[in-house]
């Protein structure tokens, strides 16, 4: 008989890393490996409380342990943030299609992240960095509300120093520790100097940011088929059956969560919030 798709695998919580005041990374070891592609997501269960969808931020080349960076924002994530290493969680997945990494080969990849949206993009960055010779160039542009909310700040320097990689970051509201750029993330797109024709955009972040990133990219001359957005919807089953994660005829849990803008641009609820 087929396996019950609703029953989570056991997963031991190995490590909890405080990334920002509101974001922690949870490293879990599932009872058996979960091979995933960059951008695919899992449903993480806090026993008795419920599940929530997250895209692992760790390298897709490691299936035995998954790192998941989680913003504290509600019922499930509040209880997650209370947990200490050693407890048993549950996990289902992977779900969704993942990023179109093959299509990106030979191209420049413009990765635009906002806030905790850098977490799902990080699995893509791992993949791109591990296979950097397959790509022309990787341009990472990141924005957060304030410096304390910058995710993976300790790694920025190393990213910027990599061959074929450029990195830039901005915050909406600076504090005294900040001597970097100030402004929303789209301001970093104005001075790109990329070969638009040969570039794909991949973006993840709050809906409002995705909307402005999309507009900015269209203005820069990108065509809708060059823009991939990681879209968020309320998700439950992960299997394309519970019905709630749709944009038009697409179910993001199955057809996404990263969608080519060309496919969805004509459905009016894409950016509404």
């Amino acid at each position: 008989m087929a396996e019950n798709p609703y029953r989570p695998l056991k997963a031991e919580l190995l490590e909890v890393i405080q990334e920002t005041p509101t974001i922690k990374t949870f490293v879990i070891r599932p009872e058996r490996p979960i091979p995933f592609a960059a951008g695919q997501f899992v449903q993480l269960t806090v026993p008795g409380i419920g599940e929530a969808p997250f895209t692992p931020s760790s390298s897709p080349s490691v299936a035995e342990e998954l790192g998941i960076s989680v913003l504290r924002t509600g019922r499930v994530t509040d209880s997650l943030h209370e947990l200490e290493p050693g407890v048993t969680l549950g996990v289902r997945g992977p779900f969704g299609k993942g990023y179109p990494t093959e299509k990106l080969e030979g191209k420049t990849v413009l990765v635009v992240g906002g806030g905790v949206g850098l977490a799902p993009l990080r699995s893509l960055l791992h993949h791109l960095f591990e296979n950097i010779n397959s790509y022309e160039h990787v341009a990472v542009r990141y924005g957060a509300r304030d410096p304390s909310e910058l995710l993976y700040r300790r790694e920025f320097e190393a990213w910027g120093e990599k061959d074929r990689v450029s990195f830039d970051v901005t915050v909406d509201v600076p504090d005294e520790s900040w001597d970097g750029k100030v402004g929303v993330v789209t301001t970093l797109l104005e001075e790109l100097g990329l070969d638009v024709e040969n570039t794909y955009v991949v973006s993840c972040g709050p809906l409002i940011m995705l909307r402005f990133v999309t507009l900015a990219c269209l203005n820069l001359g990108f065509r809708p088929e060059q823009i991939y957005l990681s879209l968020n919807r309320k998700m439950s089953c992960g299997l394309g059956k519970c019905g709630r994660c749709n944009i038009g005829p697409y179910y993001l849990c199955k057809d996404g969560p990263d969608m080519c803008y060309e496919k969805i641009k004509d459905y009016k609820d894409v950016f509404s919030a």
């Binding site: 919807r233 709630r244 509404s272």
Partner: peptide, 17 residues
């Protein structure tokens, strides 16, 4: 039905509010 998670404290986004 479609209410999503959102930033702490803010009204939760709902693509079909």
């Amino acid at each position: 039905y479609a209410v999503m998670a959102g930033p702490p404290g803010a009204t939760k986004p709902d693509p079909r509010r």
